[in-house]
Design a protein around this nucleic acid. Structure first.
Lengths: 252, 252
DNA sequence: CGTTGGGTTGAGCTTGTTCAACCACCGTGG
DNA sequence: CCACGGTGGTTGAACAAGCTCAACCCAACG
């Protein structure tokens, strides 16, 4: 199934090594794959096994696309390690990054008349547990608790994206960058990931497309925050020195 | 319940008059109130009755708040006529309007630790069927088909808000206004409402806060479109003359 | 008939964009 | 080993889109 459509390495079922550099806990595919985002209640053994049988482990290289908007909607992916950028491409090479998804989250779920509703791109090396869409839905339909988890996850994302609307619509460039850092900090800790330093493997272009700015503007905003001693920058890592000040600057 | 908390007129159960000026079909409270947004499969009589018993008809004046962000999450509202603006207020009087909701849609659903996640404001006179939150959830939990409708509605909104992210992040002022008009046209027809003329009862301020612009900019964008003969403006009504051109101008 | 609130229009200003140069890093190949 | 080109990030200067502020219009209303 999945492996045929999407040219990603498919791992044998045994190799469930967990070497996620920044994730405290590795979340193997068959361990609570229904949990879409935050909560992590393991399923009982029988159902774990059942779901496990419908999933395949895949590994994606940096900048590889898990799925593309408009393409016939194939598998649903549960990220087990790495970060995925979910985005909508639009005319003239512009695109809007909708979210950066962390391990434990599900992507490729939404479809628009039979096709994926977004692009999904690996920001880092990414491992996923990929489920056949039909089987996934069948499993969800057959397990009320899992269904509720999915619903809760949808509600959660709706909240987040509502917040992001406000960021895009109302904040200045510096406020947006500050709010981005706070969001990432919050998300990382919600996923049990390290926040000091904060690992930001996405490019300036990714951040710019997420915040509705140009890369130069993002760069300048970072420079400003650095200059004001609010944070320290070192390649892909950020250390926030003055969280209080950063929160004020985010202006929400 | 509801009436005590929220100072809106509560109608007696009999008066289910339908005088929605622009809605082709009136959707009385007990008729498929589970249907959150678009689809409208009537429930069978027994369950209609059951749900009906948990709902109250309310009527809201223009500019009245159905609920406010942060307030203890009370009832869940199903709009039966009129338009509701869902928004997030932020510092210094700024706010982001997240969506304009039409008859048939549900609002006040999302909560952030026990409080409403958004403001809900009546743009026109609005009629709602207001459900006790606990009872609503219980009913949904007891009716699988209804639960699925709710889930589908959440997915639908997630799609729309993903689109809106792209509008806020990437489009120019004129593109935003054009895309707004197209969105409204699409939504209105999806709800069986008239689109020629397109009735836009929301103020310039509402539109501006929805599009992340200032009222002057919105006004100028409308003027430009009018000048280019793409549309005609008459108080609260808009007639789109050149839909094709408008779509091009929206640039998505 | 004056006031008020929503909408429009103009002029100047601010913020973020555009365009270009420059730097650091890195993998490649002579 | 070092020259080379490619990529991603930073910085500067000029420009433009949208914002601010102010004036004005018009309809509704007491």
């Amino acid at each position: 199934m999945a492996s045929a459509v999407i040219s990603a390495q498919v791992l044998p079922r045994k190799s469930l090594a967990s070497n996620a550099k920044y994730a405290k806990v590795a979340i193997p595919c068959f361990h609570c794959p229904a949990k879409a985002f935050n909560v992590c209640k393991p399923l009982d053994y029988e159902r774990q096994k059942e779901l496990f049988e419908t999933g395949v482990q895949q590994i994606w290289r940096r900048r590889q696309f898990l799925f593309r908007m408009g393409d016939l909607a194939g598998p649903i992916f549960k990220i087990t390690s790495g970060i995925v950028a979910v985005s909508k491409p639009l005319l003239e090479g512009r695109r809007q990054v909708s979210a950066f998804l962390l391990p434990g989250e599900v992507c490729g779920y939404l479809e628009t008349n039979g096709g994926y509703a977004f692009d999904g791109e690996a920001i880092t090396e990414v491992r996923t547990c990929s489920f056949n869409r039909r089987q996934f839905h069948a499993f969800v339909a057959a397990n009320r608790d899992v269904d509720n988890e999915v619903k809760a996850a949808l509600e959660e994302r709706l909240q987040q994206v509502g917040q992001q609307q406000a960021v895009l619509g109302q904040l200045t460039s510096t406020e947006r960058v500050a709010s981005f850092l706070l969001t990432m900090t919050r998300d990382y800790s919600a996923h049990g990931m390290q926040t000091r330093p904060l690992w930001l493997p996405m490019s300036r272009a990714d951040i710019a497309d997420y915040l509705g700015l140009r890369i130069e503007t993002v760069s300048r905003a970072f420079a400003k925050l650095k200059h004001r001693k609010v944070l320290e920058l070192d390649d892909e890592e950020v250390v926030i020195h003055d969280l209080k000040r950063l929160t004020e600057l985010a202006g929400i």
